[in-house]
Nucleic acid binder design. Sequence first.
DNA 1: CGCTAAGCGGAAGGGGCCATCCACTTACGC
DNA 2: GCGTAAGTGGATGGCCCCTTCCGCTTAGCG
Lengths: 220, 220
Amino acid sequence: MPGHPSRIAPPPEAAGLRADARHNRDRILDAAREAFATRGLDVPMAAIARRAGVGVATLYRRFPSRESLVTEVFADQLDACGAAVEEAMADPDPWRAFRTAIEKVCAMQLADRGFTAAFLTAFPEAVDFERLRARAELCFAEVVRRAKDAGQLRADFEPADLVLLLKAGNAIAAEPGEVAAAGSRRLVAYLLQAFRAEHAEPLPPAPPLGLGHVYAPAAR
Amino acid sequence: MPGHPSRIAPPPEAAGLRADARHNRDRILDAAREAFATRGLDVPMAAIARRAGVGVATLYRRFPSRESLVTEVFADQLDACGAAVEEAMADPDPWRAFRTAIEKVCAMQLADRGFTAAFLTAFPEAVDFERLRARAELCFAEVVRRAKDAGQLRADFEPADLVLLLKAGNAIAAEPGEVAAAGSRRLVAYLLQAFRAEHAEPLPPAPPLGLGHVYAPAAR
DNA sequence: CGCTAAGCGGAAGGGGCCATCCACTTACGC
DNA sequence: GCGTAAGTGGATGGCCCCTTCCGCTTAGCG
């Protein structure tokens, strides 16, 4: 598992742009980031453009589809997410590594309403996305293996359960105000207890979900 | 706790209608029920009308607002939900009563995509709704009390946790196909284990949510 | 400094849904 | 039967969003 090479060059597609265009591109990205975080993934494109102080056309020229915008916006965050999981892996205590990995990711989803949606949504053409997600998935699988080997994580835990947790957490995180934070933390606390090996009682089978296989209805 | 008096007369507002009008009203209700179940609470009104084989105007005349339609459609289901909880209460084993109450409600939400949304959404003017929900809430509180007294449900369980579970479960139930069923069951199984008294480790505080206080952004 | 291609923004076309209005039809009391 | 009020459906206008097009502006090279 390498350090954090993840994102090679910042934005390879912003290279040949004229100076003013590149500037606008950045403003759009900032505006989109903020809009997605507070209002979710389906804010009107026009709202993003207005917030960025550009015309709609500029937005569309730079990012022909909403997905391409989402992809670019969340590349960083996805990267940070992977980094968080890798960082958690450094913890010598396998259970604590597992726990903090989950808690960090959930904290991120709490801070940014669009994040999990983006994370969980399959963007067929977003190659980079896939790669980053695959990396996060690999790291997480490693954390899981260690926690299981140490006898602290129940043996019947499956990666799909993480997706379950993320999707559930996302729903709670979408709640207004206070509820989101308190609810998310509490849900995670409950589930972490349920994941502990000591308490393991038989479970129904896991759904056919993988971080990689996830298909969530793509943000229209 | 009374038997099941709940809904007194079937539809008091369908009384003075002409025969054909009443017939159409029923068709609308059927169509809406099916539409809400499969496509969620925000299907176009026109789709419901078409499915019912009536014009939009008829739909709007009978149910001036979307909410009034939702209210009428889910009154039965909400009633069935209350009945399920009451039935679960009859179980002499407090924990099994608690467990089956939750499982039944979750099964209902799995079967009908609009159900939980309706259940969790505050319809300010839907008095009857409130009354039914209050009844369910009372029964559930009783089940919780018994399970806690028996030392099987953790003492720090709060009613808000049920809402949490419902909202989380709802998100999973909205998944396409196979995932919904398997995921919902598994999530519920995990949470039920976390709710058991034996495993209780400290929890973060519960969010300010009550079945009664719930405010979910009303179906626009 | 001037030319040109790159970049720009607003307007406009298109689609979906909501909610209302109105000219026609029909149940049903007498 | 028949008159009438209740009932009906489709057409309509309003709103919001997406996406494209087009005439104007401007960066930046030579």
